[in-house]
Computed example of a mutant assay.
Amino acid sequence: MRILLVEDDQSLGQAVLGYLKSKQFSVDWAENLQQARAFVATMHYAAVLLDLNLPDGEGLGLLPHLNSSIFNADERPTVIVVTARDQVSDRIRGLDAGADDYLVKPYDPEELLARLRAIERRRGAQISSVLRSGGVAIDLARESVRKDLVPVVLTPKEWALLRVLASRPEQVFTRERLQEALYQWDDSSDSNTLEVFISRLRRKLGSSLIETVRGTGYRLVAR
Results as ranks from 00 to 15, higher is better:
residue 17 L to F: 15
residue 203 R to P: 07
residue 184 Q to M: 04
residue 150 V to L: 13
residue 140 L to N: 10
residue 183 Y to P: 01
residue 181 A to S: 07
residue 92 I to A: 14
residue 45 Y to T: 08
residue 119 I to C: 09
residue 1 M to E: 00
residue 169 P to S: 06
residue 80 I to D: 00
residue 198 I to S: 07
residue 167 S to W: 04
residue 124 G to V: 05
residue 29 W to K: 07
residue 110 E to W: 12
residue 140 L to R: 04
residue 109 P to T: 10
residue 16 V to S: 01
residue 123 R to F: 11
residue 172 V to M: 02
residue 215 G to L: 05
residue 165 L to D: 03
residue 17 L to M: 07
residue 160 A to I: 03
residue 71 F to M: 09
residue 19 Y to I: 10
residue 119 I to L: 09
residue 77 P to D: 11
residue 143 E to N: 08
residue 133 S to F: 08
residue 134 G to H: 08
residue 5 L to I: 07
residue 61 G to C: 13
residue 9 D to N: 08
residue 188 S to Y: 12
residue 138 I to R: 06
residue 69 S to N: 14
residue 4 L to P: 02
residue 62 L to K: 15
residue 74 D to H: 05
residue 82 V to C: 10
residue 129 S to C: 02
residue 52 L to F: 15
residue 43 M to H: 00
residue 151 P to V: 15
residue 198 I to Y: 06
residue 220 L to T: 08
residue 192 N to P: 01
residue 101 D to K: 05
residue 128 S to K: 03
residue 216 T to R: 06
residue 136 V to D: 09
residue 53 N to T: 05
residue 160 A to R: 01
residue 24 Q to K: 07
residue 57 G to E: 15
residue 159 W to L: 03
residue 193 T to H: 12
residue 203 R to C: 15
residue 195 E to N: 13
residue 219 R to T: 13
residue 211 E to F: 08
residue 111 E to W: 10
residue 140 L to M: 08
residue 220 L to N: 05
residue 159 W to G: 10
residue 153 V to E: 12
residue 65 H to L: 14
residue 105 K to E: 05
residue 106 P to V: 11
residue 33 L to A: 09
residue 70 I to Y: 12
residue 19 Y to L: 13
residue 61 G to Y: 09
residue 176 E to I: 00
residue 59 G to A: 14
residue 43 M to T: 02
residue 43 M to Y: 01
residue 143 E to G: 04
residue 105 K to T: 02
residue 117 R to E: 09
residue 35 Q to A: 15
residue 161 L to N: 04
residue 146 R to M: 07
residue 13 G to S: 08
residue 7 E to M: 09
residue 1 M to V: 02
residue 164 V to E: 03
residue 181 A to M: 03
residue 67 N to E: 11
residue 200 R to D: 11
residue 186 D to R: 02
residue 129 S to H: 01
residue 29 W to H: 06
residue 100 D to K: 10
residue 193 T to W: 11
residue 157 K to W: 09
residue 163 R to P: 05
residue 155 T to Q: 07
residue 105 K to A: 03
residue 69 S to W: 09
residue 97 A to W: 12
residue 47 A to M: 09
residue 126 Q to M: 11
residue 119 I to M: 09
residue 12 L to Q: 15
residue 117 R to K: 04
residue 130 V to G: 03
residue 83 T to A: 13
residue 1 M to Y: 00
residue 49 L to V: 10
residue 9 D to Y: 10
residue 85 R to Q: 15
residue 158 E to T: 14
residue 65 H to M: 15
residue 151 P to K: 13
residue 101 D to N: 14
residue 111 E to D: 13
residue 26 S to C: 06
residue 20 L to H: 02
residue 71 F to Q: 13
residue 111 E to F: 07
residue 24 Q to F: 07
residue 93 R to S: 15
residue 79 V to M: 03
residue 117 R to L: 08
residue 98 G to H: 14
residue 208 S to C: 10
residue 210 I to W: 12
residue 222 A to M: 14
residue 99 A to V: 12
residue 91 R to C: 14
residue 74 D to F: 02
residue 100 D to H: 05
residue 213 V to I: 09
residue 178 L to H: 06
residue 102 Y to R: 13
residue 121 R to P: 03
residue 130 V to C: 03
residue 48 V to T: 01
residue 21 K to Q: 07
residue 46 A to I: 03
residue 31 E to C: 05
residue 44 H to A: 12
residue 177 R to P: 02
residue 127 I to Q: 11
